[in-house]
Write a protein that binds this DNA or RNA. Sequence first.
DNA 1: GCAGGCGTAAACACTT
DNA 2: GAAGTGTTTACGCCTG
Length: 396
Amino acid sequence: MGPITGMTPDKKAEAPEAEKAAGLRQIYRMGSLPEAVDAARPKATLVDSESADDELTNLNWLHESTNLLTYFSLGSEGLPIVSPIYDIEGDNVPSFSPSCYQNLEKISATSKPPYSFSLLIYMAIEHSPNKSLPVKEIYSWILERFPYFATAPTGWKNSVRHNLSLNKCFQKVERSHGKVNGKGSLWCVDPEYKPNLIQALKKQPFPSALAFYTPPASPPRILDCEKAKPLKMPKKRSYGSTFNHHSSINLQENHSAAINTDPKEDHNYSASSMASQCCASRSSMSSLSSVDEVYEFVSKTSHAGSDGSEGFHSEVDTDIDYEDDPLGDSGYAAQPCVDTSDKSQPSKKALKELCQEIDEELKEAAGSLLHLAGISTCLGSLISTAKTQSQKQRKK
DNA sequence: GCAGGCGTAAACACTT
DNA sequence: GAAGTGTTTACGCCTG
């Protein structure tokens, strides 16, 4: 049944692209940005004081880190084409300035993105407001972000579908009950494997992958894939094994994903990175304030505001039927697995669900705030370290 | 050298 | 019937 040709001419034709990609990776690693990112990545939960000190007092690291810091701006706008992952958890997440990816963008337009298909799919799904997308929209998202595929052989779509089918990380969910909205089903990320995907993202050369991943500030949202019974039983074979379920990081439990005490997982962070330093700062936020406290606070706030509060975007606001808005970002976002027949006469249950959704949104917002706080802490720490170091040098 | 992850191609069934 | 979608199998490359 399988191909006789194996690596086809297509594959061979891609070889130069692969070289480019390889070169690209080198570029990523050569640049100060990823190195800076690496430089500050914590290697373990707690770095021993000496090594920590070494890292912190290393001027090269500092230099690079400060270089890095000049790159990102809070609230910067625009989407770096090749690094959409920063946006995974929301549009308000601070991002690197697109300028720092200018060169990469140029390259990426013609070269293969350095993400595996599973990650691309993950990013696409996560980018959707409701964390679920039909295959077609996954194509669109990838095409939009990675123009490379516009000119790539159509086989990549096959690969996407292949990944969706095979990869345990992805679950097929029914579209809205009793409705037939075009072909195919919606696909979402299996929450169980989400941390693993995130971890896989961390391994990517793009610093923003980790630096600006906003850890879930709330318990896993009840998404379509969680509401709906997966259409199929866990059937998938090896692809999902990339992400050993048992060794996965529990981001909910320990939202400092970058900090992993499991030596087996440590290789994932073999190179310390600025990205996770930011995350570390974020994680160190636990010393600043308890996430739970924020949950509580936000929860209370949301309850207080749920009876008419405004100004906070809820998915419900954009509850446009996918049928009506097939191309819009909002479309499938809101409709899947929600019986639209309920909308005409919002029941208490519907209202409760709505409140819950707003609640979740607020919790996520809290996460973003914590995230910002982490970055702020990170910046503060770096600046003070820089000052200390420069003072020391002046004295010498 | 081996295993696992990944990308790719292809065949087939099913749905729209 | 065509096109899109989903599943499965097979193979080669790359990396640890």
